[in-house]
Write a protein that binds this DNA or RNA. Structure first.
Length: 456
RNA sequence: GGCGCGAUAGCAAAGCGGUUAUGCACUGGAUUGCAAAUCCACGUAGGCCGGUUCGACUCCGGCUCGCGCCUCCA
């Protein structure tokens, strides 16, 4: 089976055929860095991490571009509130983002361009659009995109211009020719961050930077453009309008959008205020647990975060790690068997992680049922297929004992005490020791080699 | 108002026009001094109403409910 991807643009699954066989150019809209990332951000970027990992796994050479938006109204506002230069703020939160993503096993993109490093490209693009009459400058120095001039407007999101206007909550801006026109270049006040331009000092609008950076890194037409669900409109629609008007060529062939993360019934979002940050969660749970929770549902569907979501993900991972701990894990390579076939068929079908994980659970059962070389080989396969998902690479004992804090020495003492009691057939004492440990959340496991423990 | 998505067993979550999804939880058994881990057994789930079909959770229509986008948002 070949890789099939659901294309938002055509609203169907399509066989994926890169422009250049074996190579993939992929652009994903990244973070605007003025605050810590929340779990909803993790959901989206994890989805694309998985997509990139899998494409590389099947031999595609992926050039993965994920930008950082480092200039925008919120950044300026927050920097002012803090009384710090905006680039200071931006660096701080870009670093925080990378730290958080690292813990979730989200691999770094091939390139991470920043808007402020592409001001020249942005200005050139705006100039081209003005020359082609897709954009116009107004007296105060703003430049707007003439939305009605672009025939294909709405093709990605399914919006119809006249209906947008009818229900528009956009205030009428007297300088715009049309209320739906959006800003490409914003005039700046002298005290705000700004760059020189043919239209006076100013800064780029939000949508234009992605058009400039994607084309810059990947060419006029590239394979995949992705982003969070809330970027489909207007951001991605505007990117298409800008780029295709400027180049006269197709912008991106395949559009991928991740599903939203919900807290209860509602989307987790900054504007609703119903979010918690990745680092809040990482104080209580291992990054792999968060990762496994988020990849346990399909990347395009909504995921609801519930009180027990992470505990459930933890329990599932424990099943994997218990198997890996018991087995003598062989070399991490794939085996041509039904588990591999199911795993790959699922992933080839629009990155169906729940189905792929189901195959892995069946493989776990097989690992637990077998012994010796056969078991070692299957356990190696489990570890290998897990690596494709960015999971199961931790030391099993470390994973299973995580959260025990500094109690390890005390636990070993208690275990020694219990083993002595058992030898003396003093089962009452042995059980009392174990009960004391259980009360602290420590579970003992007697194995042929002795006694091991894990955090419950 | 416009456009779109979803509703699966106690919980989470997939595929599929007819044959066990999967995980957790539950129950019984094996194993264990007792446990834990593991294995075996165990659930006629598919919002409601029609239609198509020999047969529908799966296709079509309607309804109800929930959600998203249309404003910055991953």
């Amino acid at each position: 089976m070949t890789l099939h991807i659901f294309n938002t643009l055509t609203r169907q699954k399509e066989e994926f055929k890169p422009l250049v066989p074996g190579k993939v150019g992929m652009y994903v809209c990244g973070m605007t860095v003025y605050d810590y990332c929340h779990l909803g951000h993790a959901r989206a970027f994890l989805a694309f991490d998985l997509i990139v990992r899998y494409m590389r796994h099947i031999g595609l050479d992926v050039n993965y571009i994920r930008n950082v938006t480092d200039i925008d109204d919120k950044i300026i506002q927050r920097a002012n509130e803090n009384g710090e230069p905006f680039l200071n703020l931006v660096d701080r939160f870009a670093n925080a983002m990378n730290d958080d993503f690292d813990q979730l096993g989200i691999e770094r993109p091939t390139h991470e361009p920043r808007a402020t490093a592409h001001i020249d490209d942005i200005i050139k693009l705006v100039q081209t659009l003005i020359e082609k009459e897709y954009a116009y400058a107004v007296p105060n120095g703003d430049v707007y995109y003439r939305v009605r001039k672009f025939e294909g407007y709405g093709k990605l999101s399914g919006k119809v211009l006249d209906e947008l206007e009818a229900g528009s909550r956009v205030g009428v801006d007297s300088d715009k020719e049309d209320p739906l026109d959006f800003v490409l270049w914003k005039a700046a006040k002298p005290e705000e961050p700004h760059w020189d331009s043919p239209w006076g000092i100013g800064r780029p609008g939000w949508h234009i930077e992605c058009s400039a950076m994607s084309t810059c890194c990947l060419g006029d037409t590239f394979d995949i453009h992705g982003g969070g669900p809330d970027l489909k409109f207007p951001h991605h629609e505007n990117e298409i309008a800008q780029s295709e008007a400027a180049t006269g060529k197709t912008y991106a062939n395949t559009w991928i959008h991740a599903g939203a993360l919900r807290l209860g019934a509602e989307k987790m979002s900054k504007s609703l205020g119903n979010f918690f940050t990745i680092r809040d969660i990482l104080e209580k749970y291992d990054g792999e647990v968060v990762r496994f929770f988020l990849i346990s549902s399909h990347y395009r569907s909504h995921v609801s975060y519930l009180d027990n979501s992470l505990d459930e993900a933890q329990a599932k991972l424990e099943r994997f790690y218990n198997a890996l701990q018991e087995a003598n894990v062989g070399e991490a390579v794939d085996i041509d068997n039904e588990y591999s076939k199911r795993f790959h068929a699922a992933m080839d079908d629009d990155f169906n992680t729940p189905e792929a994980i189901a195959a892995l659970f069946d493989l776990v059962r097989e690992v637990n049922k077998t012994t010796g070389d056969e078991q070692a080989a299957l356990a190696g396969q489990l570890k290998y297929l897990g690596s494709v998902l960015g999971c199961l690479q931790a030391d099993p004992q470390t994973f299973l004992q995580a959260g025990a804090g500094d109690d390890a020495a005390w636990i070993e003492e208690m275990i020694a005490k219990r083993i002595a009691a058992k030898k003396a057939k003093d089962f009452a004492t042995a059980d009392a020791v174990r009960d004391e440990l259980v009360a602290k959340g420590i579970v003992l496991k007697d194995v042929p080699e002795g006694t091991s423990w894990s955090k419950s």
